[in-house]
Design a protein around this nucleic acid. Structure first.
Length: 439
DNA sequence: GCATGATCATGC
DNA sequence: GCATGATCATGC
C-alpha cells in the first residue's frame, strides 16, 4: 500500500514524500501498469500521481484530497519563458463554483476555503513532445496557505464573484472581474454545453470554476511574496495603484516628466505617455509586474480638448490563417477584453496643454463583449471569403479591424494566397470616449 | 473631423 | 528581428 509510505495526517510527512518526485518523472519514480503508460488523456498526470504515487483514488468530492491533513493536492505545468525562467503553463483550476450554494456562504465558511485553503502544488515541466508520465517535476513541491498568501486580495476576489451571482449575473462572470482568483470557464463548451441554473436569474450560465490566474501562479512560482512595494497593507490593488498616480493628477506632461528625472520625449516616441505612466507607477518594470500579475491591462488614453479620444485602442496583430482555426472563447482578442483594464487618462486642455486627468479601472460590460464577439466572428467569416474586406469602424459601435504593423512590408498570408499587411482588432475611439464619460 | 491606412520607438 | 503599444498621415 502506497499510503503506508507516509503519514496522511501530517502535512510535513506528505510534503517530504511528495519531494520524492522532485527532479524525476512519474515513470522514473514508480512502476506503472502498461495500460496506464500507453494511455494519454488530458489531465491524466494529476490523476496518475494521486492513484499510483500517493495511492488514493482520484475523487471530485467536496473535501481536500488529504482530509486528515486538510491538504488539497494540485499538479500543474510550468514552462520556460524567453529568459529561461519558469512560468505557469496555464491557470490552476481549484474547484467548481456552485452558483446555488455560494450565495449562502460567507468567505470563512466557503467551500473554496474548505477544500482549497491548504494546497500542495507539484510542478512538472510541460513538453508537448513528451508523454505525461515522462514529464519531470522540476521544482520542489509548494505548500500554499490561502489565508497567508495574498489573503486580502483572494478574499476580495471571492466576494466579487459571489456578489455577481447574488446580483443574478452568473452568466456575465468574467475573469476580468477579479485580480488573482478567477472565475474561469470549465467543462464542456460549444453547442453541446449544458448551461447551469443560477439562483437569482432565469438566465442560464456557463459552468465556471475558481482558479488562480496564470500570471498569479507565475508569481507564486517565482517565489515572490505579494505584499511587495506596490502594495501597502490593508489596501486593495486598485487603491494602492490610485495612490501611486495621485501626486500627478492634474499635472502637465512637462511637470510630470520633470519629477521623473527629466524624462523627456524623444522625437516620434509614440510610447511616451505609456512610459510616463509606467514611471509614475514606480521604477519599472517591477511595479508594473504587480499589475501584470493580476492580468490587468494598462492602457493610456489621450483626450482632445473636446473630451474625445484622439485614437482608437489597438491590440496585438493576428495572422489571417490563425484566426481561421480559432473559436471565440479561446481567441486572443476574447482573452484580452475579458481582462480588467486600467485606463490612464490624459486630457489636452483649452490651453492646448496636456495633463494627467484621471485613472480608471474598468471591465468591458457583457453586452459589449457580445458585440466584440460579433465583430470577431464576422472578421473570421470575411477573412475566409476575401481577407482584404474586413469590418471597419463604421460597422460597429465597439470594435473594428485595421492595419497594425511596423510598416507595410510586414505582411502575412491570407487564405486567398495573398500577402496582406498585418492587422489587429481595435476598440473604437468613440466607444472608449463613451466609457470614460460614464466614469 | 472622422475613418482608414501607415508607421514609429522601444524592449526583449 | 519582431511584437507591442501607440501615434502620425491622408483622403474624403
Amino acid at each position: 500500500m502506497r499510503e503506508e509510505l507516509y503519514d496522511n495526517t501530517s502535512i510535513d510527512s506528505i510534503y517530504d514524500f511528495a519531494k520524492g518526485l522532485t527532479g524525476k518523472s512519474l515513470l522514473e519514480t514508480i512502476g506503472l501498469p502498461e495500460k496506464v503508460v500507453n494511455k494519454l488523456s488530458r489531465g491524466a498526470l494529476g490523476n496518475m500521481v494521486e492513484e499510483y504515487y500517493f495511492g488514493f483514488k482520484p475523487n471530485s468530492e467536496h473535501r481536500p484530497d488529504f482530509p486528515l491533513a486538510n491538504l488539497e493536492l494540485k499538479i500543474t505545468g510550468v514552462k520556460r519563458n524567453s529568459r529561461k525562467e519558469f512560468v505557469a503553463k496555464e491557470r490552476l483550476v481549484l474547484t467548481m463554483i456552485n452558483f446555488k450554494e455560494i450565495v449562502n456562504e460567507t468567505w470563512e465558511t466557503s467551500s473554496l476555503l474548505f477544500k482549497c485553503r491548504l494546497l500542495l502544488i507539484l510542478f512538472y515541466l510541460y513538453d508537448r513532445e513528451q508523454a505525461d508520465v515522462d514529464r519531470r517535476f522540476v521544482l520542489d513541491p509548494m505548500i500554499y496557505d490561502m489565508l497567508k498568501h495574498d489573503a486580502e486580495i483572494i478574499e476580495q476576489d471571492w466576494r466579487a464573484i459571489q456578489s455577481k451571482i447574488i446580483d443574478g449575473k452568473a452568466h456575465e462572470l468574467s475573469e476580468g472581474d477579479t485580480f488573482y482568483l478567477g472565475a474561469c470557464r470549465k467543462g464542456r463548451g460549444g453547442p453541446a454545453e449544458v448551461l447551469q441554473q443560477q439562483p437569482f436569474s432565469d438566465n442560464p450560465a456557463k459552468s465556471r470554476a475558481f482558479s488562480f490566474k496564470q500570471t498569479y501562479l507565475t508569481q507564486l512560482i517565482k517565489g515572490h511574496e505579494a505584499d511587495g512595494f506596490l502594495f501597502r497593507p490593508g489596501l486593495t490593488l486598485e487603491e494602492s495603484t490610485k495612490l501611486k498616480f495621485d501626486p500627478f493628477i492634474g499635472k502637465t506632461i512637462d511637470e510630470i516628466s520633470l519629477k521623473l528625472n527629466h524624462f523627456k520625449r524623444d522625437l516620434n516616441h509614440k510610447g511616451f505617455n505609456r512610459e510616463l505612466a509606467e514611471r509614475m507607477l514606480g521604477a519599472k518594470p517591477q511595479d508594473v509586474a504587480e499589475l501584470a500579475k493580476a492580468d490587468i491591462e494598462m492602457k493610456t488614453v489621450r483626450l482632445k480638448a473636446n473630451g474625445k479620444p484622439k485614437e482608437s485602442m489597438s491590440f496585438p496583430s493576428f495572422k489571417y490563417l490563425d484566426i481561421q482555426n480559432e473559436v471565440w472563447e479561446e481567441s486572443k482578442f476574447a482573452e484580452r477584453i475579458e481582462r480588467k483594464f486600467l485606463f490612464v487618462v490624459f486630457q489636452i486642455g483649452a490651453d492646448n496643454v496636456e495633463r494627467l486627468s484621471k485613472i480608471a479601472f474598468w471591465n468591458m460590460p457583457y453586452a459589449d463583449r457580445l458585440e466584440a464577439q460579433r465583430v470577431w466572428e464576422d472578421t473570421k467569416k470575411r477573412v475566409a471569403l476575401d481577407a482584404t474586406n474586413l469590418p471597419g469602424m463604421s460597422e460597429s459601435t465597439v470594435a473594428h479591424v485595421r492595419p497594425k504593423a511596423h510598416n507595410s512590408m510586414h505582411r502575412n498570408l491570407s487564405p486567398q494566397g495573398e500577402m496582406l499587411v498585418n492587422k489587429c482588432f481595435w476598440l473604437n475611439s468613440g466607444y472608449i470616449g463613451r466609457i470614460l464619460q460614464e466614469y
